[in-house]
């Protein structure tokens, strides 16, 4: 089988497809994002397309792909043609940068560490909180089932894990062995691991598994909106983590497709008043002080640690989530 023949066949298949798709010649962007942003970007894409058309006269369609943040980064590294990535945490974009698809200093290119909105981790429990879950230490009690996605594939799950770790460090006077033991006990109460945050939400809210869901704040609020505040309630722990989901333009892709201008405008639009307002409406904490004040009543005031306490994402990833890292160790201890 020669390479030429292979190329011919591939080209043939591509042509067959192009013939079908040729009618579509409008501006188009692909935003590869993580799980709980689905509803937010549906609304945001409409608003941006309108603004873009008003400014340039071009009709724009924004395509979306959602999944666990780590998994999405993998797809982009493997050749998924993302113009922009809007992922759950910096490390996943770092991994794309390591693969040479965008500049390593991507995080400095947009304000606020390239994270136009923030969120945090809260608990979602059944109405009336039958197990009386108030804080992280209630999660390690025997008989409490905790639902969280898999930290190896999901960004939200890594924030969950780190928030639990931060709590344990604080409660145990920064004793790492004790923190490890605490997190290990917590994961012993986890009956299943979905690959993304959305899968876990479905497991908890729809399938009725577990007593508490560790969730993105925006995902928890969305659940209340979708299923009614009469079924679930949100519990805010004494301490949580400031989750900064970053965004970036994928240089290699936009330069090849000639979409840099629209991709950059798209991300900048996230920082505008309108973008911030849509984020806030979808339960993300806006960066703009003005909107933060306006929506202040919506978000609980909770003590938040930042990823810097873990020495940044690269260090946290290396220590906790790499193969043989702390997460692997506690998982093997636990079972």
């Amino acid at each position: 089988m020669s390479l030429r023949r292979l190329t011919l066949l591939a080209a043939g298949l591509t042509l067959a497809w192009l013939g079908v798709a040729a009618a579509d010649s409008k501006d188009s962007l692909l935003n590869v994002s993580y799980d709980p942003t689905r509803e937010f970007y549906v609304e945001f894409n409409k608003a941006f397309a309108k603004a873009w058309q008003a400014e340039t006269g071009h009709v724009l369609t924004v395509k979306q792909a959602h999944g666990g943040s780590g998994k999405q980064a993998r797809s982009v590294i493997d050749g998924l043609d993302a113009d922009v990535v809007t992922l759950a945490l910096g490390y996943d974009i770092d991994a794309i940068a390591d693969a040479g698809l965008l500049a390593k200093d991507w995080q400095g290119r947009l304000p606020n560490n390239s994270a136009p909105y923030t969120s945090t981790i809260v608990f979602l429990v059944k109405k009336g909180n039958p197990k009386g879950i108030k804080d992280w230490n209630d999660l390690v009690k025997p008989g409490v089932q905790v639902i969280t996605p898999n930290p190896k594939t999901s960004g939200g799950a890594r924030w969950n894990y780190l928030a639990a770790w931060a709590y344990a460090m604080q409660a145990n006077g920064n004793d790492e062995a004790k923190a490890k033991e605490f997190v290990s006990r917590l994961f012993k109460n986890v009956p299943m691991l979905d690959s993304g945050a959305r899968g876990s939400t479905v497991t908890f809210t729809q399938r009725g598994i577990g007593d508490v869901l560790l969730a993105w704040e925006n995902e928890a609020y969305l659940s209340l909106k979708e299923f009614g505040a009469d079924k679930f309630e949100i519990v805010t722990p004494s301490l949580s983590i400031l989750a900064e989901p970053p965004v970036a333009v994928v240089d290699k892709v936009v330069d090849r497709k000639g979409t840099r201008k629209v991709a950059e405008a798209y991300l900048q639009f996230l920082y505008t008043r309108e973008g911030q307002e849509i984020a806030a409406r979808n339960f993300y904490r806006p960066r703009s002080p003005e909107l933060a004040a306006q929506y202040a009543g919506r978000f609980a005031d909770v003590k938040l640690v930042t990823i810097d306490q873990f020495g940044g994402w690269r260090a946290a990833q290396e220590k906790h989530f790499s193969d043989g890292g702390v997460f692997d160790q506690i998982f093997q201890m636990g079972r």
Binding site: T7, A10, T14, W17, S75, I77, G79, D81, A99
Partner: peptide
């Protein structure tokens, strides 16, 4: 075989042919 890190990945990328994550 055809992923960007696959055997023919870079070659296909240079040719502008997308196989994985596309219809082919």
């Amino acid at each position: 075989l055809f992923g960007l890190n696959g055997l023919f990945g870079t070659y296909l990328r240079d040719m502008g042919i997308q196989i994985i994550f596309a219809v082919p």
